[in-house]
Amino acid sequence: MKEERSKKPAKITDEERRTFLKLGLKITGVLAGGTVLSVVPLPEEARALMEMEGYRHTKYKPHYSMVIIQNHCIDCERCKKACKLTNHVPDYGYRTTILEKEVITDEGEPFRVFMPVLCNHCLNPPCVRVCPTKATYKDPQNGIVMMNIDKCIGCKTCMAACPYNARYFDEEKRAIDKCNFCWDTRLSKGEKLTACAAACPAHVRIFGDLSDKESEVYKLVFQPDKIVWVLRPECGAKPCVFYMND
């Protein structure tokens, strides 16, 4: 059986093979003179690699994204405080917050895990798709999922669509508010980091340009020997906030 698989199908071009790979299928044989193809699903790891490749060449430049070194987070919440001050976030809402869970180690000992969360600035953002007035949109240059509050009618459909609970209704603005990587408050003024990343004392939030091969985020996301994950990948939103452990 193994021998049969390793045999190269005669009449399949590399291009065709790639098309099948994109569908998550690997060509394992050609039968009946090329009229019948034998295909199997790619192994899990290979699929994951293919997924990551989708992040390597996007149309955004710079492509702002964030890596979160999860096990460095100590829930000091300086990020949250800095975000609130910088972006005038009211007490009833948040643009970023820290989640907490208790897990049991292999040795049976409980330990705390803190997980910073924020808008994932997805490549395929469900919030943008559902907005009836195009008040929320993905910036064509830098990939930030932005809000145009003048167009927002407060229907909250985007809140329901977001798999990451990253949006809230701002009572004062009478519009949805969300993380925009501090675009209006910092990045557009020449700052290199978001307020949360700048405030973090534990090197948890690493912010940068995923389209720049020299950037720290690029190097962290595409290093081959580390496990990198995203939240709720099954939603297909292609989130651009990556998680890893040190």
Binding site: H72, I74, D75, E77, D91, Y94, T97, I98, L99, F111
Partner: peptide
């Protein structure tokens, strides 16, 4: 093992009771 000792703002609030400065959404 950072979180063996670092209990965070959440841990602090749990141990000391609800704080006036919290926004009531700490547990989210």
């Amino acid at each position: 093992r950072c979180t063996a000792c670092h209990i965070g703002v959440k841990g602090y609030n749990r141990l000391t009771g609800p704080k006036a400065e919290g926004n009531g959404h700490e547990g989210e």
